[in-house]
Simulated scan of single mutants.
Amino acid sequence: MADTPTVRWGIVTTGLISSWFVEDLALPRGDAKAKHVIQCIGSSSVEKGQAFVKEHIASLSPTLYGTYDEVYADPNVDVVYIGTPHAFHKKNCLDAINAGKHVLCEKAFTITAKEAREVFAAAKAKGVFVMEAMWTRFFPLMRTLQKLIHEDKVIGDVSRMFCDFGQAKELASLGPDSRFKSLALGAGTLLDVGIYSLTFGLVTLDPGVGESAEMPKIAAQQTLSDGVDIATTAVLLYKSGRQGIVTSSALFKTPDVFCRIEGSKGYITVEGDAVSRPEYFIVHPTVPESKGGAPSKRYDFENPKRGFYWEADAVALDVAAVKKESSIMPWAETIRVMEIMDEIRRQGGAKYPQDDE
């Protein structure tokens, strides 16, 4: 369609999450809100870029660069997608912004809230669009879940929620330079997967986002191994009495039922193989059908591949509308999330080199 915007992407790094992102962008979709062109790939070498393209998007022919700087300098790139480890996000974002590029940067957006503020200040000065790639927030499932909870009140007044994201990592088999073990790279469950549990807590307990959302009080505990958090538990405490218990672990894989939201008229379970990619949820009324209540209702959502295209579509539409930030994931919300994780780490003990900067 003539009104469908086109975005030319420059992909920074050839890691796992970048492979998922480009595969989703290349997926033919009848309901696509934008046309996505993978313009170029930046890696530590052209050879790595060639292997990446061959494995993940063999039918495409993006320009291959052996440096990230060449991606930022490419005049045919509209938006830079950053999929590097957390510790490099600040520098990658600032370099792309300095080149005048719009940016979609993976979560966790930075290591600290202070770093996030620096990135957004640079984006504001340069007048470019920047967004944290918290892709799960853009799923139709998540948007429907929020509407049913906060607008339709299908479970009444929400009082409590639980969410866990655990992955069984063979940490003993990993070298010290692994992103799962190196503090210099931002290792730890909180920034890697705990951010998803936290996200479920924030979006189900509060209808607001960013400046319109309440900052809950935090009570947190972490289990550390060589300074790296291998398990984190945080309780979100709201003035109304609502509570959220959000957890992450590198020791045990979460079962498919990973989230429960409780209200005065029922509860909701959210299920799927990973918290980052929920597959469906079920609304359970307090009074079961066997006792005259309404039946439980399951909500399923079509989700080919993984679902990165929804956030990519949103970026394309925002850039076309000359917006500088997303209404779903605005800068203030990224800062709020980073501030909460800073506080969780302050209480739990996980510390990164960036905390001293």
Score class of each variant (00 low, 15 high):
Thr4Ile: 10
Pro5Gln: 09
Arg8Met: 05
Gly15Pro: 12
Trp20Lys: 13
Phe21Glu: 04
Leu25Ile: 10
Arg29Ile: 06
Asp31Asn: 07
Ile38Thr: 00
Gln39Arg: 15
Val46Ala: 12
Lys48Tyr: 11
Gly49Asn: 09
His56Asn: 15
Leu60Ile: 14
Leu64Phe: 10
Leu64Val: 12
Asp74His: 00
Val77Asp: 00
Val77His: 00
Val80Ile: 04
Phe88His: 04
Lys91Ala: 13
Lys91Gly: 02
Val103Gln: 11
Leu104Gly: 00
Cys105Arg: 05
Lys107Phe: 08
Lys107Asn: 02
Ala108Ile: 12
Ala116Arg: 07
Arg117Leu: 10
Glu118Ile: 13
Glu118Gly: 07
Glu118Trp: 13
Glu118Thr: 15
Ala123Val: 11
Lys124Met: 09
Lys124Tyr: 12
Val128Gly: 11
Val130Ile: 13
Met131Gly: 04
Ala133Leu: 04
Ala133His: 12
Trp135Val: 09
Arg137Trp: 09
Arg137Pro: 01
Phe139Lys: 05
Pro140His: 11
Pro140Gln: 10
Gln146Met: 12
Gln146Val: 14
Lys147Met: 10
Ile149Met: 08
His150Ser: 08
Val154Arg: 02
Ile155Glu: 05
Val158His: 02
Val158Glu: 05
Cys163Glu: 15
Gln167Phe: 14
Leu171Cys: 14
Leu171Asn: 15
Leu174Asp: 03
Gly186Phe: 00
Thr189Asp: 14
Val193Ile: 15
Val193Phe: 04
Gly194Pro: 11
Ile195Leu: 07
Tyr196Lys: 04
Ser197Thr: 07
Leu198Ile: 08
Phe200Ser: 05
Gly201Glu: 03
Gly201His: 03
Leu202Met: 06
Glu211Pro: 01
Glu211Gly: 07
Glu211Val: 13
Ser212Arg: 08
Ala213Gly: 06
Pro216Gly: 04
Lys217Glu: 11
Ile218Val: 13
Ile218Asp: 05
Ile218Arg: 01
Leu224Met: 11
Asp226Ala: 12
Val228His: 08
Ile230Ser: 09
Ala231Asn: 07
Leu236Tyr: 03
Tyr238Phe: 13
Ser240Ala: 07
Arg242Pro: 02
Gly244Trp: 05
Ile245Ser: 08
Ala250Lys: 08
Ala250Glu: 06
Asp256Arg: 14
Cys259Val: 09
Cys259Ile: 01
Tyr267Arg: 08
Tyr267Ile: 04
Ile268Tyr: 05
Thr269Trp: 01
Gly272Tyr: 14
Val275His: 14
Val283Phe: 00
Val283Met: 05
His284Thr: 01
Pro288Tyr: 01
Glu289Gln: 04
Ser290Trp: 00
Tyr299Ile: 04
Asp300Tyr: 07
Asp300Cys: 11
Pro304Asp: 08
Arg306Ser: 11
Arg306Glu: 07
Arg306Thr: 11
Tyr309Asn: 04
Glu311Met: 13
Glu311Gly: 03
Val315Asp: 08
Leu317Thr: 14
Val319Pro: 11
Ala321Asp: 15
Val322Ala: 15
Lys324Tyr: 09
Ser327Val: 14
Ile328Asp: 03
Ile328Trp: 00
Ile328Phe: 09
Pro330Ile: 11
Ala332Gln: 12
Glu333Arg: 01
Thr334Trp: 05
Ile335His: 02
Glu339Gln: 10
Ile340Gly: 05
Met341Gln: 08
Glu343His: 02
Arg345Cys: 15
Arg346Gln: 13
Arg346Ile: 07
Gly348Arg: 07
Pro353Thr: 10
Gln354Val: 06
Glu357Gln: 14
Glu357Ala: 08
